[in-house]
Design a protein around this nucleic acid. Structure first.
Lengths: 117, 117
DNA sequence: TACATATATTCCTATATAGGAATATATGTC
DNA sequence: GACATATATTCCTATATAGGAATATATGTA
């Protein structure tokens, strides 16, 4: 099996660095595709393709304004990713402490019980 | 260009659903590969390969215990992902409000100015 | 309608999987 | 050392890109 499609979920969509940049760029206000092209220094078709992926997974919204299409990041779309990452938050301090404890324990054992290096 | 390597960063590593499952399974304590195999219902080589990716990006730690290797999630490794997702947090409520406002505005315009439906 | 501008889609290719199958490596025990 | 157990690596294949090139579609304007 190959990798899952980039459009299969938010996780896959934001795996691409360019798309993460685009999301930040479109976070504070809506902008036409041409602005993204200029900012990203990517060809227009590439930008359109990235925007399509982001739209498919609900990370941007679009509306037409004349011949422009205005894209903006849908911050709520990031919730699944944020909530998932938050699961790990409560383990940060705790785990660092435990690893440190074990390291010290092993260091003591090395000093007093064996000649282990 | 193809997609970036799964080992290029945390974002790419967690794009794979199985790896996300493994990370949760290994979050509270260290476990041998065989436990992961049993839990995930994947072949052992597949699990080893997933663990390799996770280790390469710093999302798990390993230590040998006899002929077992004990893996555990390194929660701190998730920080980059968590911090990046957190950027979007402050836009959640705000954006929802604005979109609602504009929708109402357009609705009013449709009622009073034109016959637009 | 003809034309310019803005954006999207299609076609192409090199690349990187994810999992299955087979095999290799490492460690413990007798 | 011989053998069993635990884990890792290699080889294989189907699949899905990401970007470049070319083209198609949509909209505004004269």
């Amino acid at each position: 099996m190959a990798r899952a499609a980039t459009t299969s979920d938010v996780f896959n969509a934001v795996a691409e660095p360019r798309r993460r940049e685009i999301l930040i760029f479109l976070l504070d206000r809506e902008r036409p595709v041409s602005d993204v092209v200029e900012k990203m220094r990517l060809d227009q078709p590439s930008v359109s393709k990235h925007l399509r992926v982001l739209h498919d997974v609900g990370l941007v919204r679009v509306r037409r304004n004349g011949r422009h299409k205005l894209y903006q990041t849908r911050a709520e779309g990031m919730k699944p990713l944020h909530e998932w990452a938050a699961i790990f938050e409560r383990y940060w301090g705790r785990q660092l402490l435990r690893v440190k404890e074990r390291a010290e324990q092993m260091a003591r054992a090395g000093e007093t019980v064996t000649g282990k290096r």
